[in-house]
Nucleic acid binder design. Sequence first.
DNA 1: GTATGCTTTCGGC
DNA 2: TTACGGCCGAAAGCATAC
Length: 366
Amino acid sequence: MVLGRVVMLADFDYFFAQCEELRNPLIKDKPIVVGVYSGRTEDSGAVSTSNYIARSYGVKSGIPIFLAKRNLEGTDAVFFPVDHDYYQQISDRVMQILSTYASSLEQVSIDEAYLDVTSQMEGNFEKAYIYAQKIKQDIKTQVGLSLTVGIGPNKLVAKIACDSQKPDGLTLVKPEDATKFLAPLPVDRLLGVGKKTFTRMEQMGIKTIEELSKFDVQRLIAVFGKTLGLYFHNAANAIDNEPVIFAGEAESISKIGTLKQDTHDLTLLLQKTDELTEIVYKEVAEKNYSFKTISIYVVNVDLVSKSRSVTLEQSTRDKEVIKRNVRVLFEKYLAESSLDIRRVGVKVSGFSKEQPQQKQLSSFFG
DNA sequence: GTATGCTTTCGGC
DNA sequence: TTACGGCCGAAAGCATAC
């Protein structure tokens, strides 16, 4: 007999800021802001995460640090630069604990993971609620962090359940309630529905997931193609068979940095990207990857970002190949755009573990 | 025509 | 009135392959 799946999404609350609270519990009642400082001026940078007290002042992820300071003027707010190594250590600990509760764990980011607990629950959703409370309590006791859990018959429902109540939340959606739960939500809550698709669906008279679920499949297929059309139809009907599987290594490695001064000068730009390349290369070499695609990333003075990339004929693991291609990409880019540049980045992707492909003599004789 | 792959942009955290 | 990170995968748009 095949059990219906029981899937959880565990998502740690305001993770970076909560880690700072953990390190220094005395600041818990204050607004906390964790930000990335570019080093250009005292307060140049952006907010990465803030606790809920800071959020009540409109201080949220992505806003400039100077704005956060202005909003929090007169409060006893505390500001921290991101300490990624520390957050990673905490993440490793909590993920390790979570993994003991599941048959499989799929980490989606530093603070988020899916758990397949079907066999632990024997398919029983009543048990799952108690089980999730136990997990939350265990993490609270062992590590001291709060998290939000969504439970559903698959990843899709678990994710949306999780989003529905934060922080320190626990939302359970039974299989028989799943379609009812999704019905009133706007279609862009579904993975795969971005701005363009949202607009297209809107024009077709589809705004809610319920409307999408009732829409004729054949017409969906006619508009979006077989794969996407079927996917949308299933998702809207709370059907999702994506397994919870151990997520492999990252698909790309990149490094971005803010320049001391805005510039359009190739030599100055390459000076910076060479530094970034060294760091990227070090990580790629440590992981023993070969890579096939090299990209540059540019943020102009107007804060508009652009990227350019090349894909090589053959994968390589050569640092000089990165530098050569970054140079060529920048030469081209600078000829196209006359704006001064504020930030630059280097990215490699298209990884393989093997040595770079080369014609093997043995194949001649095989 | 549909699927696949590559490039660029978008958006979440 | 200005001022503003870094990283990732998803989405979108196109070209080419099947």
